[in-house]
Simulated assay, not measured.
Amino acid sequence: MASNSVIKPKTQAGKRALARREEKVIENTKSCLLIRGGNTSEAIGSCLKDLYSLKKPHALMLKRRNPILPFEEISFVEKMSRKYDCSLFAFASHSKKRPNNLVLGRLFNYQLLDMIEFGVEGYQPLCTFPVAKVPVGTKPCLSFQGEEFDSDPTLMAIKNLLLDMFQGPRVEKIRLQGLEQLIQFSYCDGQILVRSYRILLKSSGSKIPRVELSEMGPRFGLRLRRHKLATPEQSKQARRQPKVATIKKIKNIVPDDGLGNRLGRVHVGRQELDKLQTRKVKALKRPREDFNAADGKKIKKRRLSDNKKRKNKE
């Protein structure tokens, strides 16, 4: 009879591996699992290798071929994602019905969230561009051109998936010299054109440098074939954030313009300066001409009370 006890790691490497997979307020950088199908063409195989180069070091490429069909059976992908702790995957295959086929997808809690199938067209590999490449692990700038990315529901889901796939590690501060790569996605005639550029900062004679773009590859187009999007319940569960990670908004306090200061608005009621109590000195005493009619009645009452006191003394 099998026991339900949790097996504890016996080595330090095992403890570190379990610590990386523990629940965190801010999740780790998403890793991508790249899988080759049972049959691949030279173009789609080279495209998968170039995607691996763009995603390194947050990527893992399986060496063996795997004759699977993700849209029919996803269990193998889920099993490998759990084994290697990857929440993104890319599957490449080639057939007569679907030539140069590329499937990009995401997993949540090691279960399929969504995946989209593309046909790769007009592919030019990374090695054909004689330009110096960016260092491994560089966080790229992502650019999306086309109104359809903000209006069409399917393209909005594709944009969200591409952001997850290529955004790289999360950083708190960015320096100008660190902006070295630009990946551009343009929607044109039912096709998403993917271009990768190296950002060059040239001297301009002023503090602001002159920016030039040099294409470094790869270059290809993605034509939508099939898609399997997440249900509203799955999407809501995947986007849920813990209360610790959410920043509580403080009323009437706004940050200053990038200087690290905070400005607050204080609501003060109407102030009646005439009734303000000040120090009782002769210099601050008002003359009798300044008293209004109500104050004049008080003066008369005081005079009558003073006269009564004098009579009682006499």
Results as ranks from 00 to 15, higher is better:
residue 260 G to P: 11
residue 9 P to H: 03
residue 37 G to E: 05
residue 220 F to H: 03
residue 196 S to P: 00
residue 47 C to I: 00
residue 200 L to K: 12
residue 179 L to R: 15
residue 99 P to M: 09
residue 75 S to Y: 04
residue 76 F to D: 08
residue 57 P to G: 09
residue 128 T to I: 11
residue 51 L to R: 00
residue 287 P to V: 13
residue 127 C to I: 04
residue 65 R to P: 01
residue 131 V to C: 12
residue 279 R to Y: 08
residue 290 D to F: 11
residue 73 E to M: 06
residue 158 I to R: 00
residue 156 M to H: 07
residue 278 T to I: 10
residue 302 R to Q: 10
residue 236 K to W: 08
residue 147 E to V: 10
residue 40 T to P: 00
residue 280 K to E: 10
residue 159 K to D: 00
residue 213 L to I: 02
residue 139 K to W: 06
residue 71 F to V: 05
residue 143 S to E: 15
residue 306 D to T: 10
residue 292 N to P: 02
residue 285 K to G: 06
residue 195 R to A: 07
residue 306 D to Q: 11
residue 103 V to T: 15
residue 167 Q to R: 11
residue 280 K to W: 04
residue 128 T to H: 10
residue 23 E to V: 07
residue 65 R to M: 12
residue 151 S to D: 09
residue 215 E to I: 02
residue 145 Q to K: 13
residue 175 R to A: 09
residue 197 Y to A: 07
residue 78 E to M: 06
residue 140 P to R: 07
residue 48 L to P: 01
residue 163 L to Q: 13
residue 76 F to N: 06
residue 170 R to A: 14
residue 44 I to P: 02
residue 63 K to G: 10
residue 238 A to G: 04
residue 60 L to C: 08
residue 220 F to S: 03
residue 65 R to Y: 14
residue 68 I to P: 03
residue 10 K to W: 00
residue 54 L to A: 06
residue 112 L to R: 05
residue 41 S to K: 02
residue 88 L to N: 04
residue 1 M to N: 10
residue 120 V to H: 01
residue 194 V to L: 04
residue 261 N to Y: 14
residue 141 C to E: 14
residue 272 E to R: 15
residue 298 K to E: 12
residue 73 E to F: 06
residue 271 Q to T: 13
residue 286 R to H: 11
residue 233 E to S: 13
residue 224 L to T: 01
residue 62 L to E: 11
residue 129 F to W: 14
residue 288 R to W: 04
residue 103 V to H: 06
residue 224 L to N: 02
residue 6 V to M: 07
residue 200 L to V: 15
residue 306 D to Y: 14
residue 297 K to W: 14
residue 34 L to D: 01
residue 23 E to W: 04
residue 28 N to Q: 12
residue 308 K to M: 05
